[in-house]
Simulated scan of single mutants.
Amino acid sequence: MNFQARITTAFQEENRRLKEAGGPRLTKTHLWQAAKVTSAAVTFWFSGANAADLDTCMKIAPLLRVRGQWLFDGTGPRHEISDDGGNEDHAPIRLVDAKASAGKGQIVFSDDITKILMFRRDWLAKNDAKPDQTIGFEVDGDSMTDMHIIDGSVVLANRRRTDPLSKRVYVVWIKGKLYVKELVKKDGVWWARSHNAEKADEYPDIEIDDPEARIVGRAFWCGFGL
């Protein structure tokens, strides 16, 4: 199997897996952005006119969920021991494009390859979070500052944890928009609560009464730049 066949096979297999998982499609744009090459170079790879060097293969292999060495020359196993992307120690977590997602009722991931965060697999496992069921969400606004969730920070949410627990923080859909809020239950009704004492009047509790409202996942980490 030559390089053209290897990259074509890996590309098609990964997109079949993403389709079955309901995830966003991998495109050739992702590859040339990750490799920091031109779009024409990627076209040459798939046409068989040229092949990528080892350094380039190592950059794009995590997106294809294959080993860089195998992609380069076909030696060794095709996949790492772990089969959920990234490498043996770290897994890629994609950031949601909140603006693109708003109003659509579905998660839309950013096409910007720089908006992929790498987290240690053992740390994710300690939080009972699988990489392919974890999303990154960039916070827009100051409604949760009292819980140290500030404007511009990134929250990770576990999509496997959608059962509401009172006084836990979740990423939720409400009336076509994504929010990061604490959920509280009052008189049998669930509400999304903000935490900014200085602007409490601006952020009243939101009753989750929209039939299309749903919990995307429970938030378990927040990070921001200094």
Score class of each variant (00 low, 15 high):
Gly22Gln: 03
Gly22Arg: 09
Leu26Asp: 03
Thr27Met: 12
Thr27Val: 14
Lys28Met: 11
Ser39Arg: 11
Phe44Trp: 08
Ala49Arg: 13
Ala51Asp: 08
Asp53Gln: 15
Lys59Gln: 07
Ile60Tyr: 03
Pro62His: 10
Leu63Trp: 10
Leu64Arg: 10
Val66Ile: 00
Arg67Asp: 01
Gly68Asn: 11
Gln69Gly: 06
Leu71Lys: 00
Asp73Tyr: 09
Gly76Phe: 13
Gly76Trp: 05
Ser82Phe: 11
Glu88Ser: 12
Asp89Glu: 12
Ala91Val: 14
Ala91Met: 12
Pro92Leu: 07
Ile93Ser: 03
Asp97Thr: 04
Asp97Lys: 11
Gln106His: 12
Ile107Lys: 06
Ser110Cys: 01
Ile113Lys: 06
Met118Pro: 01
Asp128Ser: 10
Asp128Glu: 04
Ala129Tyr: 06
Lys130Asp: 05
Pro131Leu: 00
Gln133His: 10
Gly136Ile: 01
Phe137Tyr: 15
Met144Ser: 06
Met144Ala: 13
Met144Cys: 08
Ile149Ala: 15
Ile150Leu: 11
Leu156Arg: 09
Arg161Trp: 02
Leu165Lys: 13
Leu165Ala: 10
Leu165Tyr: 03
Lys167Leu: 12
Val171Thr: 06
Gly176Asp: 01
Leu178Ile: 15
Val184Leu: 14
Lys185Gly: 14
Val189His: 14
Trp191Gly: 08
Asn196Tyr: 02
Ala200Met: 04
Pro204Leu: 08
Arg214Trp: 07
Ile215Ala: 01
Phe220Leu: 00
Phe220Met: 02
Trp221Gly: 08
Cys222Thr: 15
